[in-house]
């Protein structure tokens, strides 16, 4: 409780900078990756190789009209983008991106990040209900069905890692992998974890709540201008958090030879984000029952078996 308000303000500014910059880079990267996977270039004309494209999009969205539908539930409609964005600012606090680059070393950091990551669904549900639109509501209820399917495998993955490292602290978990990254011991778990974070960040092939071909735009169908861009910001920040967690839990965080710590953690992090983008532009969307089948009948048993085997090996 001995943190001065000045430090808190500095952290908030730093986290805002990370959130903003990360979204700018990721949107550009996503469009470039999508383009090149389609034999296209993607953004080229705005800035060198389209680097300023996201900036132009952002400024344009700032200058657009923000519409609130007459029939919408006004307070819920306005609250939803904020609800999905605010947990990010707390969830980024205990993430260690380097030896010393960490806002606050918290002994329950991992639990905090996971708990706040689950709040994203609340924002989606709020938007879905508040919009008073059938597609938005369908998107919201799909997001809730989705969270039930992926949460238990996700928590089992995290439990296994906690068991191996013997700590909830992200820093301790990263340090425990000094001699060998956990991906070497737990390759299956890493795959399960990647699938669950694809589910968690609502990305294709699991983007049920905004499925364009079925639900037009899903939960953010009625959001224009800044409301939409806040959702966008939240989506890309959740990607950042999920990828950072993956790099800390399985790839040893900032540790690596030659390069300084933050560079290593950013490399690993963006590598995992690239993997998510690669999934998005390769796989078609599943049906919702196939997703539930995957979550309950494949990911959950595999994660459970893996958990028990790990527990047995550790006990011996």
């Amino acid at each position: 409780m001995s943190i001065s308000p000045v430090t808190i303000v500095c952290y908030l500014l730093g986290i805002s900078a990370v959130v903003g910059l990360n979204a700018v880079i990721l949107v550009w990267l996503e469009r470039k990756v999508a383009g090149h996977m389609h034999f296209r270039y993607g953004p080229m004309e705005v800035g060198p190789h389209g680097l300023l494209q996201t900036l132009a999009d952002g400024i344009k969205l700032l200058g657009k009209q923000f519409l609130v539908p007459d029939a919408a539930d006004r307070p819920l409609f306005l609250l939803a983008p904020v609800v999905s964005l605010v947990p990010i600012f707390v969830a980024m606090v205990p993430l260690p991106l380097g030896e010393t680059l960490q806002a606050w070393e918290l002994n329950i950091g991992l639990l905090l990040v996971v708990a706040l990551g689950l709040l994203n669904t609340l924002g989606i549900l709020l938007a879905g209900w508040g919009s008073n639109n059938k597609y938005a509501l369908l998107g919201g209820s799909r997001a809730v069905a989705q969270i039930l399917a992926y949460k238990i495998p996700l928590l089992l993955c995290i439990l296994t890692i906690i068991m191996m490292a013997g700590s909830y602290s992200l820093r301790q978990i990263a340090l425990a992998q000094k001699d060998g990254w956990y991906i070497l011991y737990q390759p299956l778990l890493f795959i399960i974890y990647i699938v669950t974070i694809t589910l968690e960040t609502n990305r294709s092939p699991f983007d049920f709540s905004e499925a364009e071909s079925e639900l037009v735009a899903g939960f953010h169908i009625e959001y224009s201008a800044m409301g939409f861009s806040l959702f966008f910001l939240a989506e890309y920040s959740y990607m950042f958090i999920a990828a950072a967690l993956a790099s800390i839990l399985f790839l040893g965080g900032w540790q690596g030879p030659f390069l300084p710590g933050p560079v290593w953690s950013l490399l690993k992090l963006y590598g995992i984000i690239f993997l998510l983008m690669w999934f998005r532009w390769t796989f078609p969307r599943l049906r919702i029952d196939q997703m539930l089948h995957l979550g309950w009948k494949i990911l959950l048993p595999l994660a459970l078996v893996n958990f028990l085997v790990t527990a047995g090996v550790l006990a011996l």
């Binding site: 639990l111 996971v114 708990a115 706040l116 689950l118 709040l119 669904t121 609340l122 549900l125 509501l137 919201g140 209820s141 809730v144 069905a145 969270i147 039930l148 949460k151």
Partner: peptide, 19 residues
């Protein structure tokens, strides 16, 4: 744990029923 269990699990289950 309160956030994770009550909001992340119980409330989501309620929301699932609500929808």
């Amino acid at each position: 744990m309160q956030v994770m269990i009550y909001i992340g699990a119980v409330c989501v289950a309620i929301a699932f029923g609500l929808t």
